[in-house]
Nucleic acid binder design. Structure first.
Lengths: 192, 192
DNA sequence: GTCTATATTATGATAGAC
DNA sequence: GTCTATCATAATATAGAC
């Protein structure tokens, strides 16, 4: 096993551990045990515990940034852009389940320099998201509302999927995507 | 200052600290410093660190359980029951901001016995919430959808308020309540 | 690349004086 | 009820043999 894939294995194992016990609640001994080596051996692949958290959060941040840049360039309605983002959130929740859970729950524990970069990413993502919502409100596709509150509502509904998702529920993914989109766009009340 | 209010002061200070640094990331020395005493002195008021987390989570659980029991007995439509719950979530997010944030973020670190009780509370609350949603779907007040997914969407949107809320935003509370209710019930898309 | 051994620091909690 | 002093344990990380 070469350096790179061993490191990836450690990061993925760390993601599972951090998710379960939290970053500060996880120990290097615990992680090493889950990887199947001694704690000291971890340091042949990584420099520190906080590097693990940084790698996880930055990886997720890149995925979202790339997708946002793609969606921004789409030549489609605001609603379709939002749907594209919703679909991506669902996709990433399924494919990078542990890492996204860790990013959402543990980013507060990033070291100072990683934290700065992460907050910059998050603010930019939210700015872009809000801009799409505002565009939709202005052109009449969306109901009049505070763009920030709309963004928070949509993002938080999507975030919840991280708790809901389990691999054995994979087959229902399409059902969720359709129902969730419907709920966010049309609400839950009948004769709306 | 008598025992009770001193203990309350410690718990409230712990809530602020746990929220910021997480339960495992917070130290008794740190807490003591914020209270203005030495770490050893804390143990004159509490028995252990995990007692602090338990008290916070159980306190919040009681508030929600009481409200749910009240709402269940209401002689009103399913939608009005949901609105009552939404209003309560918003109210509690404002009045018990730090404690609810800690409960949501740190309940995983409860000790075994408190954890058992907390999960029982949470499951019961979700069962009751789902039952109201199902009732609304069955009687035609709500659109056809999976009750669990509806519950998750509503609860997660409300949970997000904990991050959004800041004391200086207090004046906008009514705006939020109205817009959030609208969004959840009617969705965000125009000519829905 | 992994191991054993260990340095260093920090943690939750207690003992006992005042 | 608070303090100082301290115990016992556990944490991240390093050194050096293999």
């Amino acid at each position: 096993m070469n350096q790179r894939s061993r490191k990836d294995e450690i990061i993925q194992t760390a993601a599972i551990l951090f998710r379960e016990k939290g970053y500060t609640g996880s120990t290097m001994r615990d992680l090493a045990h889950n990887v199947g080596i001694e704690a000291a051996s971890l340091y042949n692949h990584i420099n520190s515990k906080d590097e693990l958290l940084s790698e996880i959060c930055i990886h997720i941040a890149h995925l979202f940034t790339n997708e946002m840049n793609r969606v921004k360039k789409l030549n489609s309605s605001s609603v379709d852009k939002l749907i594209a983002l919703i679909d991506f959130h669902i996709l990433i929740t399924i494919d990078h389940n542990d890492m996204i859970a860790v990013t959402n729950q543990e980013w507060r524990h990033l070291n100072d320099s990683s934290m700065t970069g992460f907050i910059k990413f998050r603010d930019q993502y939210e700015q872009n998201f809000k801009a799409i919502v505002k565009e939709g409100i202005d052109n009449g596709e969306l109901l009049q509302a505070d763009p920030e509150l709309v963004m928070f509502t949509v993002l938080s509904s999507l975030r919840w999927l991280q708790f809901w998702y389990r691999p054995d529920r994979k087959l229902e993914t399409d059902t969720i995507r359709i129902q969730l989109k419907n709920m966010l766009l049309k609400g839950i009340q009948a004769h709306g």
